[in-house]
Design a protein around this nucleic acid. Structure first.
Lengths: 245, 245
DNA sequence: GAGGATTTGTGCGTATGTATG
DNA sequence: GCATACATACGCACAAATCCT
């Protein structure tokens, strides 16, 4: 048959998972044992395991073993009033949003354009980590107009809420104007901050929030672990938009 | 040094790409030559290339070589009036939607629930492929109420348009009620139908369309090539939804 | 189109490094 | 310290797809 041996082994392992190949903790037999069992070289088993880890079915840990990954995804709603904690509130016992880092810098062209600022304007960048039930689910980089929101980093650090921080700056309400969505493999930083394993996928959103007078106030890029989060767009109550094309 | 050799090689290749390692067509030197050049085994080069292919930087083709992947993504709008061809119309010279397969079957519970049918109801399943400028960008599986839309497969096959096919069944207009979005690695079928290479990512949407009286008419799962497509949600004109949590 | 050369894909054997318990 | 188990690396050989003559 024309199909590679390691793919066949991967299928066998995949099927084995649902029929007791792993122990009670979800741990697979060691590679060496699997190699014996299937009558192939350990490298071949490793190729199969790498592919399954790749798919998110398995997870390997040096020195500890290979485990079946258990999945349960949070559903993150995207709409006019997208807010991190509120969105996950009914799915998680506890959510948190922590500031990792902040800096004042000159806006990159894309950031300046999104925020409606002049090229080279000063912006505040905030890096934050979102968790639900203690599990990191998203990592965001947000930019704010430095002139208008000078104290926002402190406020966010104290409150753990963008909404509260904006309120402290006089923004009583805001809405999500647009959300771009793409997916890619996690890079080294994603892997570290979100505790992902090799081959993991992140869903990357680029969001623009505007205040009640439609002025841009926040531009952000958020990386969600695709294993832990699913996005949902509810169009309930959407007006007709202009024809798309 | 604590960092694996293949990672170092990957970085060297990555840097090399922007400084003329690849030829005019974006083709890299063969693995054997890279191995010599870096003074490592070909397996080590392969591990590096696999990682970069994984990230979407490179693309390998058996017998042809390894190429730097060029990317230009279509932006697929998701909103109240999401339609395949209209969404890509201003970005592509030509778009098409082709029926690959259709069948009448009893609804799975999830499908029946989404369409508001009784468990075990008869539904029509249509598999289709969406292309833009000749490139496959999405593969969809759609379900329709078999009793209400008995002739829809023929209509879609003839017109290449879900909107036209629905119109032929008396649905003058419809809107997108909700869209779930997740991302995963392409499986074997995705790889084949969308011409993806190993390690590719697909963005998977689960969409529900309803008619003007809010009755569900179409439930579909669409796999987009994450390399070729980016989704965008424009909240322009969104009403307030109920508080999210 | 036939056939050889090129290039990536698969598989095995072996050895050693590194993290865990 | 010691055993276990995954991670990395080399060398060899052949298969499969593509390209070129």
């Amino acid at each position: 048959m024309g199909v590679a041996l390691w793919r066949q082994i991967a299928d066998e392992i995949r099927r084995g998972i649902v029929s007791g190949l792993a122990d009670a903790d979800g741990r697979l037999p060691p590679e060496s044992r699997l190699a014996e069992r299937f009558g192939v070289n350990r490298h071949t088993v490793r190729a199969a395991i790498a592919a399954l880890a790749h798919e998110g079915v398995l997870q390997t840990a040096q020195g500890r073993g290979t485990y079946v990954r258990q999945r349960k995804r949070f559903v993150y709603p995207i709409g006019r009033r997208t807010r991190f904690s509120a969105g996950l509130h009914d799915q998680a016992g506890a959510t948190s949003s922590t500031m990792l880092e902040t800096a004042t810098e000159t806006a990159r062209p894309a950031v300046a354009a999104a925020l409606g600022l002049l090229p080279g304007a000063s912006v505040i960048r905030i890096e934050s980590l979102g968790t639900a039930d203690g599990v990191p689910v998203s990592r965001a980089t947000s930019w704010f107009d430095g002139a208008r929101f000078s104290g926002i980093a402190d406020l966010f650090a104290r409150t753990g809420s963008i909404t509260a921080a904006l309120a402290g700056c006089g923004v009583t309400d805001y809405r999500r104007a647009s959300t771009g969505i793409e997916a890619r493999h996690a890079d080294e930083a994603d892997t570290r901050e979100l505790h992902l394993s090799a081959g993991a996928i992140v869903i990357v959103t680029q969001a623009l929030n505007v205040d009640l007078s439609e002025r841009p106030i926040q531009f952000s890029t958020t990386r969600f672990s695709a294993d832990r989060v699913e996005l949902i767009v509810s169009s309930t109550g959407l007006h007709d938009a202009e024809p798309q094309g």
